[in-house]
């Protein structure tokens, strides 16, 4: 039996021992695409990534969970509608709602799964221009106080890749007003709304701030040379790393 060092594995990082102890689960569903990217992001931030399988019935001893992007079950039904019923999801929902407030990040398809799971309000429909779109997207951090954003500052602008087909965030006006009032709009599109999302919303959180979902992909902006650049060629390839350092900071507690 041979061992394939799969692409996306084993990047050596000068790990901070304190952070390396923090275990972040990365869930794989059939059709998940960005699981290895999310795991790499965790490693590059200094943490330990743990692979979780959708059909598992136990969450294990992870300190946080990332539900990565992709097309789980092909998105042939409403995106995320099938994955939401995976055995592991009920554990994640319980842990996120528990007193321990497990930090959960849903990226793209992961965000769609979180709305389908009712951990986050609203829903995503097809982009207003009806096409898949992939671009380097500027976001404004509207709330730097969630489990996944404490390493950013309020109002900070970051560039991360965006790539989706069903990325138009919608909710009724009352919900949108409540999200705004409670500071639960965590990210907003700046300069260009790529999918017609209501109020330029790119990402939101639950009331406690431990569950965050967004359409753009911070895990694709964590490594020099492999991420976005600004229009004039200035590298902005690690703007997404803050998501992962934020949660590690949160887990180990206090200052890094």
């Amino acid at each position: 039996m041979t061992s394939i060092p799969l692409i996306g594995e084993a990047v050596a990082v000068a790990a901070e021992p304190r952070l390396a102890g923090a275990k972040i689960g990365v869930v794989t569903f059939p059709g998940t695409l960005d699981d290895r990217d999310a795991a790499r992001a965790v490693r590059l931030a200094g943490g330990t990534a743990v692979s979780l399988w959708h059909a598992d019935s136990e969450l294990g001893d992870v300190d946080a969970v990332i539900i990565p992007g992709g097309f789980s079950y092909g998105d042939y039904l409403r995106a995320g509608a099938i994955s939401r019923f995976a055995p592991l999801m009920s554990k994640i929902i319980d842990a996120a709602n528990s007193d321990a407030k497990l930090p959960v990040l849903g990226i793209c398809n992961g965000f769609q799964i979180l709305t389908e799971s009712h951990l986050l309000p609203g829903s995503m429909i097809k982009n207003d221009h009806l096409k898949f779109i992939c671009r380097d997207q500027t976001l404004r951090v509207e709330n730097a106080n969630t489990a996944w954003t404490v390493d950013y500052t309020d109002g900070q602008e970051i560039i991360v890749p965006l790539k989706n087909q069903d990325g138009q965030y919608i909710a009724d006006e009352k919900t949108l007003d409540a999200l705004e009032a409670e500071g639960r709009v965590v990210f907003r599109y700046v300069g260009f709304n790529p999918n017609g999302s209501r109020r330029d919303i790119a990402g939101i959180s639950n009331a406690a701030g431990n569950v965050v979902g967004l359409m753009p992909h911070p895990e694709h902006a964590v490594e020099a040379g492999f991420g976005p650049e600004s229009l004039n060629g200035e590298p902005r390839d690690t703007d997404g790393l803050g998501f992962f350092t934020s949660v590690l900071t949160k887990i180990v507690g206090g200052d890094k």
Partner: peptide, 14 residues
Amino acid sequence: ITKQYDRYVGGNTA
């Protein structure tokens, strides 16, 4: 054309 394609997935596109 190309903005309708994902060029990032996998994290190894240089």
